[in-house]
């Protein structure tokens, strides 16, 4: 009896210890992360003023409009290049490829490799290939192409998951009704996989908006609204980096961080919402 009690007490205290550990860690994680967001918003929102949104940048107004414009130009351009390619590649992998084919293994290994490459290495490659070898100079186009390689694995993987989640019965039904393979893919499989594909696309928008290291030496850092794709321009993240490391405009840095954070949070919330929708439906 006595021994039992002792055991129980030992068990209880080790349970308590582990509970404290778990709760403490969770509190630290969520605390720090929420503190970060709240901190930036509280410090930054008072500094958001109309001059930040003037049409052109100078060292007086530190306007973020050119950077915002460059971001909003670069994002659709990169998506336009990568989204079709990535989705087509995923279609090949799920609908066409034979099981255990050498090509499939090679595609998977290289996609995995691409997704692990640090963004600064993409930046180096972009500046070697697009900027120098193809002679595009520091330009939006060079930045966009670098970004589009960077988001390829993201779009491929999410599209593949989405296509795999479409039940085979859909395909069999389409074949049974006399549709060809292509028709089945485009009319039946692709529409049902659309929410998953879209979630991946939105996630890659977030990646593009947040990217800095891959852009500094490809798209350059000129703070004006680009009028042609061959001009250099800085996106919002690059602008944020330039501002905060210059160190002269701390207030404006806070405000720019708020705008950047706001954009990214909206984008990711959209992605989470869409992927929840499919989760709920399946």
């Amino acid at each position: 009896m006595k021994n039992d009690k002792k055991n129980n007490r030992g068990k209880l205290s080790s349970e308590l210890f582990m509970a404290a550990l778990t709760h403490g860690a969770a509190l630290a994680t969520f605390g720090v992360l929420f503190f970060l967001v709240i901190f930036i918003f509280v410090k930054g929102i008072p500094h958001i003023k109309p001059s930040l949104f003037s049409l052109s940048y100078n060292s007086e107004n530190v306007s973020l409009t050119p950077a915002l414009a460059a971001t909003m130009l670069a994002t659709p351009m990169a998506l336009l290049i990568t989204a079709p390619l990535g989705v087509f590649a995923a279609i090949y992998l799920t609908e066409y490829a034979k099981r255990g084919s050498k090509w499939v293994t090679l595609v998977r290994v290289t996609t995995e490799a691409l997704s692990g490459i640090p963004s600064i290495v993409y930046g180096l490659f972009g500046s070697l290939f697009f900027v120098l070898f193809l002679g595009w100079g520091y330009s939006m186009l060079a930045g966009v192409f670098t970004l589009s390689i960077m988001i390829l694995p993201l779009i491929m993987r999410s599209s593949e998951e989405a296509l795999k989640a479409v039940p085979d019965a859909y395909r069999e039904g389409a074949f049974g009704l006399g549709a060809g393979k292509l028709r089945t893919v485009f009319r039946i499989v692709l529409p049902s996989a659309m929410p998953g594909i879209l979630a991946g696309v939105i996630l890659s928008i977030g990646r593009i908006v947040g990217e800095t290291a891959a852009l500094i030496y490809t798209a350059g850092t000129v703070a004006q609204i680009p009028t042609s794709p061959m001009q250099s321009a800085r996106t919002l993240s690059v602008h944020m980096y330039a501002l905060s490391t210059e160190g002269f405009h701390t207030d404006e840095s806070y405000a720019t961080a708020v705008v950047l954070l706001f954009v990214v949070i909206i984008i990711n919330a959209a992605s989470v919402k869409i992927s929840r929708r499919i989760g709920g439906r399946a």
């Binding site: 967001v37 996630l203 947040g210 944020m240 980096y241 961080a257 990214v264």
Partner: peptide, 19 residues
Amino acid sequence: VKPGVELLAGIPSVVYGFF
């Protein structure tokens, strides 16, 4: 909390750096 953590995965590294 869960969607919150998912959102935080997307915060740009410059914002973390600034923080």
